[in-house]
């Protein structure tokens, strides 16, 4: 349901947004739920962790959901130039993996829905692999890249980042809208595709008696690579900017509809992808205790033994209710 506004009021709202240097780089829906400039703090983006038992025993957390790493407020410091800084200020939210192939880091923000409708997540982001040292370097050749003065092996050492949700409506139906940018496949070859999973994320309850089959580097969103599909066959080239120490901020805008439990569209810079036909698998069981769950998470997953970073300068969550 959209907010009932008269056209002049809508024009005024848009003019006010356009005149605000902080907001004018976004395209919010009528109601802004959250505006997170990470120059002023973490704004509720925190480490995701799996569930623990009634004794507070963290050994009972699923092994693939106990090490998603605490996000950092980063001034984007690098060994070659020192502080790069962010887009809106000095600090960005940095989500960082371990230097372990298959490791995933996840930051989550937890809200609930006051009504069902269109939800939009916008962010300015960048992604980098960790710069090498003489000791950690994997050489001048990696995956599809041979260092030639411009192309840098660091770009092929970045795996994937994901923007996703955890949603549950008043009828107890739980589902995830998910979009992943896969930079490289598991063999370090560039794919540069936007992907979505065709299965719902395995839950702690499903895994409770399946612990021996879990690995710490399991892809928790959808463990089987075969369960990921490209949105289309068109790669999207982003601005990695050659070396691991240059930061260029990209615009991302993603919409989904909690009335229909479907994606709407994903915009990343100059490309808008229609996601209306992307399936959003719901869990077969109804959920209690997650009434109107509205969680957003971002994750970064390395496909190489190199730390991968996802940086968010700022994020804006808006709705049409």
């Amino acid at each position: 349901m959209s907010v009932d506004t008269h056209v002049p009021a809508d024009d005024l709202r848009r003019a006010l947004i356009a005149a605000d240097p902080k907001l004018s780089k976004f395209n919010p829906l009528p109601r802004i739920l959250a505006f997170d400039e990470f120059n002023t703090g973490t704004h509720g983006w925190c480490e995701l962790i799996g569930n623990h038992d009634g004794h507070g025993n963290l050994d009972t957390v699923d092994v693939h959901m106990r090490d998603f790493r605490p996000p950092q407020l980063s001034s984007c410091d690098f060994f070659d130039i020192g502080t790069h800084a962010a887009m809106s200020g000095n600090y960005a939210l940095k989500v960082a993996t371990r230097p372990v192939t298959g490791h995933t880091a996840v930051a989550i923000r937890r809200l609930t829905m006051a009504r069902r409708g269109v939800v939009q997540f916008e962010t300015y982001f960048t992604y980098k692999s960790e710069a090498a040292t003489a000791e950690s370097s994997l050489g001048n050749s990696f995956g599809d890249i041979e260092w030639d003065g411009n192309l840098h092996p660091s770009e092929a050492q970045f795996g994937a980042f994901t923007v996703a949700t955890d949603l549950c409506d008043g009828e107890g139906i739980r589902y995830h809208c998910v979009a992943r940018y896969q930079n490289t496949d598991l063999d370090h070859n560039f794919t540069r595709r936007w992907m979505y999973p065709v299965v719902p994320e395995p839950t702690p309850r499903e895994n409770l008696h399946n612990q021996e089959n879990l690995s710490p580097t399991e892809d928790f969103t959808a463990p089987d690579p075969e369960d990921w599909r490209p949105l289309d066959e068109e790669p999207q080239f982003l601005c990695y900017n050659e070396v691991p120490t240059k930061v260029n901020w990209h615009y991302l805008r993603w919409q989904f509809d909690t009335r229909t439990r479907t994606n709407i569209e994903l915009q990343v810079n100059d490309r808008i992808m229609d996601m209306r036909q992307v399936p959003v698998p719901a869990y077969p069981d109804k959920y209690d205790g997650l009434e109107n769950l509205l969680n957003f998470y971002v994750s970064v997953r390395t496909h190489s033994p190199v730390r991968n970073f996802l940086f968010l300068d700022s994020a804006l969550i808006s709705v049409d209710w």
């Binding site: 957390v61 790493r69 605490p70 980063s74 410091d77 600090y91």
Partner: peptide
């Protein structure tokens, strides 16, 4: 003032020397 708590290791078992992951906190 800003305050932030990060958990760098969680119920991790070590049998040899180790270092924690780098944590950036210029603020």
């Amino acid at each position: 003032r800003h305050a932030l708590t990060a958990v760098l290791e969680r119920n991790s078992t070590f049998t040899a020397d180790f270092v924690t992951e780098p944590y950036e906190a210029g603020w």
